[in-house]
Amino acid sequence: MSILEVKDVVKKYQNHIAVDHVSFDMARGSILGFLGPNGAGKTSLIRIITTITQADSGAVFFDGEPLNLSHPERIGYLPEERGLYKKMKVGEQLTYLARLKGLKPDEAKREIGNWLESFGISDWWNKKIEELSKGMQQKVQFVSTVVHRPKLIILDEPFSGLDPINTKLIKSQIRMLNDEGTSVIFSTHRMEQVEEICEHIILINNGKSILNGQVARIKELYKDHIFRFKYEGDIDPYLLDQVEVREKQNGTIVVHVPTTGEANTLMKAMMDRGVVIKHFEEMLPTLNDIFIKKVTEKDG
């Protein structure tokens, strides 16, 4: 069952098409990555899902129902452009935002208490936001996104401006929420972060979804038959004439072969000639490589 279904959604602004016939399905409890350069249309798509704006055409279903104004209460959204009321105290601020998400006062207090405790910041309740450092504010901001136990959380560039320690902390919280069944949309232009966290991705460029699927399968699909060997001994130059050598230094060689089978043939021939193979792996493309390939492919 899908937590989110997006069908042929189009959103036009005055001068350009921000979302151009995008469709995808998101399984409940999964982590989905929205990938694309700045200005690709990720935020426009998110704003449609969070009901901040409406699609010009197409349909969105949340948890099986056509998207409506009650759904934001079940969605937690951490926008890229985020902030808090500087003059408010942490406790007040979180209570206010939680109550706007439909929590009762006592529920809100309990949940906020739990979250502050899990971040080890229970004593912040009476601190004003403006007294906190940027990293501390980000923690409060994250709590405000998840305090109402949403079914779907949407994080737009969640790690921007975070130091490595806080990044790790937030990542572990995202994993924990996901383990508990929360679906997560993770939007970023930083491809390497997506590879680490997401099972599925949607690659967006110029408002269009140009690639959509499981990360492992996409990599499989876009792999280029590049293999890396680590070895001891001398390789007969004759063998290397048969393949395209991409890199060769200090007992490591990277080659490009037409098929996976030929890599095996090469390895066997090397071993037959007395070369000791210490390590052999297929080098899968990074999402960054795939993205560049897809974009240039299209433009070409």
Partner: peptide
């Protein structure tokens, strides 16, 4: 300017 507005309108109209 605080950028709190987008957080707000993801909860209320």
């Amino acid at each position: 300017m605080n950028r709190v507005v987008e957080v707000m309108i993801s909860s209320v109209r």
